[in-house]
């Protein structure tokens, strides 16, 4: 029974990896694509909102900063070039037009070809929400750290470093947080195997 389940898991994760790249390319409009006749008005509106923010960001930080604008339901999603990651977030916080001063969510996801880090920002004073994300290759996963700008992502970045193996440059204290220091591998990566990366029996090596 247990073996069955294991096999099942492996199989599904393989198919997931195959499906992932196309999926992310059209992640949000997938809903609209399913029902081609009426595109979701929420998605359309969110996209417009996202385009407006893109214009504002690119005015300040140069063209090509925002690589993609998509939307999930009513939330606009902006994909930002990883080199401009910290500048863009700082701009979104400090610009008097935007004022996205509150980070709701900080998450990382492992796709087949890259690792994506997602932020959900909230503008307290205006009550609007956007999502911004950036990508980094799986090998040599490096991103600029946001911890100097937003101290509240300190542990979140440590968690992403620990579980997904993304190094955040400029982070004041980048250590593993959930696993212990001697742990082998990054558990939330899709190719992580609990058998290959098994720690020594009895847990932590003493020494």
């Amino acid at each position: 029974m247990a073996e069955d389940k294991q096999a099942d898991k492996v199989a599904s994760s393989e198919t997931v990896e195959k499906a992932a790249p196309e999926k992310t390319a059209k992640a949000a409009p997938a809903k609209a694509a399913k029902a081609p006749a009426p595109p979701d008005p929420r998605v359309e509106q969110a996209k417009q909102q996202g385009e407006a923010i893109k214009v504002a960001i690119e005015q300040k930080l140069g063209a090509g900063t925002v690589e993609e604008v998509i939307a999930s339901k009513e939330v606009p999603i902006l994909r930002i070039a990883s080199a401009k990651w910290r500048e863009a977030i700082t701009f979104l916080r400090d610009d008097p037009e935007q004022r996205f001063d509150y980070i709701e969510l900080f998450a990382g996801t492992d796709y087949k070809d890259y690792i994506e880090v997602v932020l959900y920002l909230h503008a307290m004073s205006r009550g609007t929400y956007i999502s911004v994300k950036t990508r980094t290759p799986r090998e040599q996963a490096v991103l600029p750290s946001l911890a100097p700008v937003f101290p509240g992502v300190n542990w979140e970045e440590r968690e992403v470093f620990d579980l997904l193996g993304v190094t955040f440059e400029g982070h004041p204290d980048l250590r593993r947080i959930m696993m212990w220091d001697g742990w082998n591998g990054h558990p939330l990566r899709k190719d992580y195997s609990e058998f290959e990366n098994m720690p020594q029996r009895g847990g932590e090596p003493r020494g």
């Binding site: 992640a27 949000a28 997938a30 999930s72 709701e104 969510l105 997602v118 959900y120 999502s131």
Partner: peptide
């Protein structure tokens, strides 16, 4: 359906969200 979704609620200790 394929895509990404985030919703959060006011938990007992703060914003409890699921992505």
């Amino acid at each position: 359906p394929a895509g990404e979704y985030y919703r959060s609620i006011e938990g007992a200790r703060g914003e409890l969200g699921v992505y």
